[in-house]
Design a protein around this nucleic acid. Sequence first.
DNA 1: ACCTGGTCCCGGGCTCGGTTTT
DNA 2: AAAACCGAGCCCGGGACCAGGT
Length: 386
Amino acid sequence: MKIEERIARRQRADDAVVPEYDAINPVVHLSEPVGRGTAVEQLLDVVLPTTTAQPTDGYVWGPKGAGKSAVVRPLFEQLRRLLGRSENRLYTSTRAAPAPNVRFVYVDARRAQSAFALLHTVVDTVIAESIPRQGVGRAAIVKRLTDHLAGTNRQLSVAVDHVDEPETLSTDAVFEQFDAFGDAVGCLAVGRDAPRETVVSNRPDTETVHINAYTHYSLLEVLTSRVADGRLRTVTTDEQLTALARWAEGDAHDALAALFGAGVTAEKRGCDRIGPAELATGMEAVPQPCVALGRVVSLPTTRKRIVRQLLAVAEADRSSVGTAADAISDAVDLSRATIERVLYELAESGIIRRVKTGETTATGRPPSRLEPRFPTLVFEHLETEG
DNA sequence: ACCTGGTCCCGGGCTCGGTTTT
DNA sequence: AAAACCGAGCCCGGGACCAGGT
């Protein structure tokens, strides 16, 4: 590429309404969470206790968009970076009482949806040599991890994010996976349900950490810092961000999704910055209530293709599951029956919604209209650009 | 030491026919 | 009665592991 082209590209990027989409992407988290100092401290009490040597089990809970992942993920990244390399610290001179050798692993349950997949990702990140994803039984994976831990005082602290979602493992199942390893493995599950509604209530040794929804002010702080990071060209007044924060009611996911949608819209319309009209469109593209975008993004590829085609299909064709399946089957290389089945499953898990239409003209059970329950503009942008 | 067929593993595509709802 | 709905199992691809034969 010529230098001239490179310069031109830079200028274009600098000119863009949203130079850095990742900064306002609801599924991407900052390396330093904003305004969550107490939560970090509470988590450190669980994960890095100064009194006991063993990693403790824990359960983090709070509503969608409260910043659970935004805190836990970077925290575990840093712990891994700062404490994870103690493997290499030699204690040859005196072999007595080596410091506990604890490693930190963050797993997104949306990316590891079965017990096998969970164990596999843990073992794969902990053990140097790559281990097979197929063809080997669960027992083999467990043995690998057991053997590894049986070495020199090795311990593991695993954070499992997004438990108890329709597509992911239950808290129960997650803890169960690591119980077999005893004190060597501590597990920190991250979910939305109150502890008393989950298996956690039967586990007295499990520490719980509650993360509340953002207050209006703290959400505003999050948005402001994200906007600055993304060098976002938005209207000069803070008024709109304030309105956005109020609209989102403490849900950072929804606020960022709307902002992202507004950015996409502004670029589509050829505006030089995000204005009130674009922001309104962005908010419209985030249905209420809204499913976390991360759930949709981590769907298997064919399912994502079906979702994308559903958005592309004409409004009229979405008026029943059957017609939607027909329309989608023109664009996707899957049988109509399969598409229909998938649509029903997506509806059951809440990613799309079936709305009863009043039409009872024809005989038989009336059809239901399909509408997306996730941030459509963000999804479309991530799917087509990514 | 190297092939080769048999068997088992996981995940996701796919289908069918029974049930529910109007 | 007809259409919408959905539970549940089959199938298959891509692999590993394990003989047993050459």
